[in-house]
Design a protein around this nucleic acid. Structure first.
Lengths: 346, 346
DNA sequence: CTTTAGCAGTCTTCTGTATTAAGTGCTAAC
DNA sequence: GTTAGCACTTAATACAGAAGACTGCTAAAG
């Protein structure tokens, strides 16, 4: 347990350092403390904080910077989240107030807004129910010229489509028969079950109608996969450049490919609980991200599931400001999306 | 008119400099010349080449680098395009040999392959006819739950779709009536004409069937716009970082937004003629690109129009190698796409 | 027992200087 | 026309010294 004064000192160190990026020394610190103590006293306290591992120094005569444990202590015990700026809130509300045709658009745009507000990189994940989505219905629309569009609709408002070509002639009535068969067998079933049944039950049936079902089956598989993997958006990727110290391309490339791999990236921002969580550097257990922190906030669309927004920034980021923004944003987004769902999905 | 020896010297300067990035001096140059002359002689020649503006130096005692005019002379008169590597050709053929469902996929993937081969940034444009595309047909597919998908098919194999919501109830028969009306009036007409007629002729008609046609009309407009603007793909955006000297984010950001603006970027790679063209630095007439060159090559899909592939690299890029790659690539792509069209669009 | 002033010592950063290496231009001889 | 030789220019590198920012420790004061 730290004394009040030690807490104050740690707090100022974190605040100063995240603002300036310069290690903070005893003199500057003592002048900022609300109680009057000399720099020598502060030095004693700092020596103690270093001993217990909350701060470190770069070399023997430099100021101190927070250690990972120091950040953790700060985030858990010291930080009081800045309430979000009025102007920032206006920006959020304005950008979310436009017309949207699909959830994807809102969630995608959210990534851009969030990255603009923070000047970091933002990641957003669409709302998702606890259970696997359920196949609503399935369509095949002939477009003429051997082209067919496959459309898949899930119970959570997701529409996935893909155009493919079919060899030989296939009349609209045959397509209708295939569609009826598939819907009879699979509508109302969870997608993972649909995926397995596609191979075992559907393919043999399709053979009755279509001679060469390869492209149809492949397309079915594709749209199913697309509907069942969780969609993931990134905003402000370029900002990584400005907040990474090591401005070296060979260093950044693997980070970019990490971010663009949906599965990998999604696992960093799956927030366990209901609100805001902060993961700092090594806590992300990926060596590439050891100098970065991720702040995740989940947003809640009631019966339609939960989504996640997240900000990726340097470990030395102004946590209280960013947490305030993420919190404000997730609340607005929840509101907006509930509205959207209520309007169209009664 | 330059003498043979002057040409050789200029050629070696460009070759050396594009390879190493280091200004080239008289001594290194003389040792590379096929005829034996002393460095002093070379110095005399270089002084002349500088006088007529083909090379410059950074400071009074540095080696020489090609000027923009020097590059231009080299590209126009000196360069003999490397035939493409066998291994590179294999890579191209392999990546283009997979199954593709839509043109977009091939063209998009081409940008990635091309950027990988060159380590620069690649831009690709879909094939386009000389005349505006023609509206093939138009569909509205009810998806249930107030959702409707609009699908637009053009005569050049383009399929554009968008989901929108419709207030109130709108039975399938009403939708069918709207679709029939639109197709009757507009099918077979060029898209630009369709766009203007949408507002004047179609909207009043739609009002007969739908009370609140806003979202429908907006969607029609969107898909039309999407189908009539030329699609544009970028590969290897990140490579910009590694070949830009000034690794400064504030310098790169405007370039990225320039590249991501379809209209702006497309105008740089509209190639006038039928083959390969090279635009060097200031010739691009955009100050942001003054240190970059663009090599464009058009590919030809016969009656289905022409597309463009392009490579964006630094002015000091190995032109002969890159030109070889672009040329090899456009030939393969032409073949592949003709194949594709022949197969499905008889 | 805590706080403080003072001071020696450490390390970074900045500045100026010297040195080296690469390359040019010019001149005079071949 | 070509070449050798030399003086001159500039960038890059290395080094030394000074300044500045801190720390840790000690000893005195509260």
């Amino acid at each position: 347990m730290l004394t009040e004064r030690e807490k104050m000192i740690l707090k100022i160190i974190v605040n100063d350092y995240t603002k300036s990026g310069v290690p903070v020394g005893s003199k500057a610190l003592s002048s900022q403390l609300p109680i009057h103590v000399s720099s020598a006293t502060v030095r004693n306290e700092m020596a103690f904080l270093e001993e217990i591992g909350l701060i470190t120094k770069n070399h023997s005569s430099s100021g101190r910077v927070p250690s990972i444990e120091g950040y953790r202590y700060y985030v858990d015990n010291l930080l009081n989240p800045n309430p979000i700026d009025n102007s920032d809130m206006m920006i959020i509300q304005n950008s979310l107030s436009g017309r949207f045709r699909q959830i994807d658009e809102i969630v995608q745009q959210s990534a851009d807004i969030l990255s603009n507000l923070t000047n970091y990189t933002a990641l957003t994940l669409k709302p998702e129910q606890e259970t696997t989505p359920i196949l609503g219905s399935f369509r095949l629309v002939p477009l003429g010229n051997h082209k067919v569009m496959a459309i898949l609709i899930t119970d959570n408002d997701e529409v996935v489509n893909q155009v493919f070509h079919i060899d030989g002639d296939l009349g609209g009535d045959k397509l209708d028969a295939v569609v009826r068969m598939i819907n009879d067998k699979l509508a109302g079933k969870p997608l993972d079950e649909v995926i397995t049944k596609l191979k075992t039950e559907i393919v043999p049936e399709i053979l009755k109608y279509v001679k060469n079902p390869d492209s149809l089956v492949q397309t079915l598989d594709d749209v199913l996969m697309q509907a069942s993997t969780n969609q993931f958006y990134i905003g402000g990727e370029l900002n990584l450049l400005s907040f990474t110290d090591n401005n070296d391309i060979s260093y950044l490339k693997p980070i970019y490919s990490l971010l663009n791999d949906t599965d990998d990236a999604a696992k960093f921002i799956k927030s366990s609980d209901n609100s805001i969580s902060v993961q700092i550097g090594p806590e992300l257990s990926n060596d590439l991200l050891k100098d970065y922190s991720i702040i995740t906030g989940s947003y809640d669309v009631g019966p339609y599931g939960k989504g996640v927004i997240a900000v990726l920034g340097p470990t030395r980021m102004p946590y209280s400001r960013v947490i305030g923004i993420v919190d404000g944003f997730r609340n607005e987004l929840s509101k907006k999306l509930r509205n959207y769902y209520d309007k169209y999905n009664q």
